[in-house]
């Protein structure tokens, strides 16, 4: 209905770009943090992204993915997580010792569970 009506005016109401922390879903964060506690240690240096094989040719960004997990931005997270090739190079770089590879794997698992209403 919204689309149809909008055509009458020649414009629609823009969608919010803001992250609303009070309505976002942080179940994935809880799941990942519990299974991979080192996830908490990420301080967003971007070393992982710099070395990432996938990130060189796709818009995969592990540093940004960590932020999405923390803020509960599930839709954005879904797009990110599928691009990782799980090579593990990021593990070697991380100055905080985050088990980055397992963060990706656990996130993918959490998303599957979320889809099955198991989180």
């Amino acid at each position: 209905m919204s689309e149809q009506k909008a055509n009458r005016f020649g414009f629609a109401i823009n969608r919010s770009r803001a992250i609303n922390y009070d309505t976002s879903d942080r179940k994935v964060r809880e799941y990942v943090t519990m299974r991979e506690p080192s996830f908490r240690l990420c301080f967003a240096c971007g070393g992982c992204t710099a070395t990432c094989t996938a990130g060189q040719h796709a818009s995969f960004n592990l540093r940004r993915m960590n932020t999405y997990i923390r803020r509960g931005e599930i839709d954005s997270l879904r797009e990110e997580v599928a691009r990782c090739m799980l090579c593990g190079k990021c593990l070697l770089v991380c100055p905080r010792g985050v088990n980055t590879r397992n963060v990706v794997a656990t996130t993918a698992e959490a998303l599957r569970k979320l889809d099955r209403n198991e989180l």
């Binding site: 005016f9 020649g10 414009f11 109401i13 969608r15 919010s16």
Partner: peptide, 14 residues
């Protein structure tokens, strides 16, 4: 610009 009025509308609705 008519096509851009969604910006304005969004702000008021907020």
């Amino acid at each position: 610009v008519q096509a851009n009025r969604g910006y304005s509308l969004f702000a008021s609705r907020k």
